[in-house]
């Protein structure tokens, strides 16, 4: 029983880390630009395809490609903000529809380029570690460690750099921030790029673990969405808390009942939270 519980917790935390990576970008973008980024899953998908192509087909070093993919997706995201989303600042519903349009376009573009097949990227490491009766897959462990590292760097960036401070200020109150000389024109693409980069990291890290295909972004996007509602749209500590809560809840229900029930329960929780406290577990009251 204790072993089962530990295994559930370990599995749950392993998924949590990736959920948090996705959710942090999603929530950062919402917090700063008030855009519900329905294209977040496609950014994840693009990074996974980059890994598939450069590691799988060209045989480049996996860890190098992870960084390259994340940076490329980050730049792409900043470009998207500049070209397509900027006109919709302050118009939340239209911005959201634009994000849906971007998501559809990217999905079909990937479909046309790569076809519908589920491809697999080579794993950087294989095998498992056994601690007594508890089994941890080695590739998951590596992904977990890298994800933790990225989260730590992100935290330090937001906490101790001037840019991080500026971004947190915009999340809190854009008008007051602008009085202090923080320019939205600079912060918006930066935040969208940074959020996209985090999605890129998540996609690149998960590419060898799951299969790579045009619609692979839908699932992690849904998870990010649940996590962010749990924690509060726009709240960065909330995304971390939400990620842990979702990872653990899912792990419990998926192990004991079934994954469909697990998803239903998490959506049920989302509905309850939106009704009772739309600002989420850690959110502030709306503007």
């Amino acid at each position: 029983m204790a072993q089962l519980a530990t295994q559930i917790v370990i599995n749950g935390l392993a998924s949590s880390l990736v959920y948090i990576l996705m959710a942090l970008g999603f929530t950062l973008i919402f917090g700063i630009m008030r855009v519900v980024n329905f294209a977040h899953g496609e950014l994840y998908m693009i990074a996974a395809f980059i890994v598939y192509f450069f590691v799988g087909s060209l045989g480049w070093n996996y860890y190098l490609v992870v960084v390259l993919a994340a940076v490329a997706v980050g730049l792409f995201g900043a470009g998207l903000e500049r070209a397509l989303l900027r006109p919709f600042i302050g118009r939340e519903l239209n911005g959201m529809i634009m994000a849906v349009a971007i998501s559809m376009t990217l999905q079909s573009a990937a479909f046309i380029l790569f076809g519908p097949d589920e491809l697999s990227a080579p794993r950087p490491v294989a095998g498992v570690i056994r601690l007594g009766a508890i089994v941890v897959a080695l590739d998951r462990l590596v992904v977990g460690i890298i994800a933790l590292f990225i989260l730590a760097v992100f935290y330090l960036f937001m906490r101790y750099t001037k840019l991080g401070l500026a971004m947190r200020a915009v999340v809190q109150d854009e008008e007051i921030a602008s009085i202090h000389g923080i320019r939205a024109r600079v912060i918006h693409p930066l935040a969208f790029g940074l959020g996209s980069m985090l999605a890129g990291f998540a996609g690149a890290l998960m590419a060898p673990i799951y299969t790579v295909y045009p619609y692979m972004g839908a699932q992690p996007m849904l998870k990010a969405f649940i996590v962010v509602i749990l924690g509060g749209l726009g709240s960065i500590p909330g995304a971390v808390l939400g990620g842990v809560v979702l990872g653990l809840t899912e792990s419990v229900f998926a192990t004991l009942i079934s994954t469909t029930i697990a998803t239903m329960v998490s959506f049920g929780i989302v509905v309850l939270i939106l009704l009772v406290k739309p600002t989420g577990l850690m959110g502030r009251s709306g503007r």
Binding site: A101, S108, I112
Partner: peptide, 9 residues
């Protein structure tokens, strides 16, 4: 999807 998405944009 491509046509839908691009038209929408």
């Amino acid at each position: 999807g491509l046509v839908y998405g691009l038209l929408l944009i």
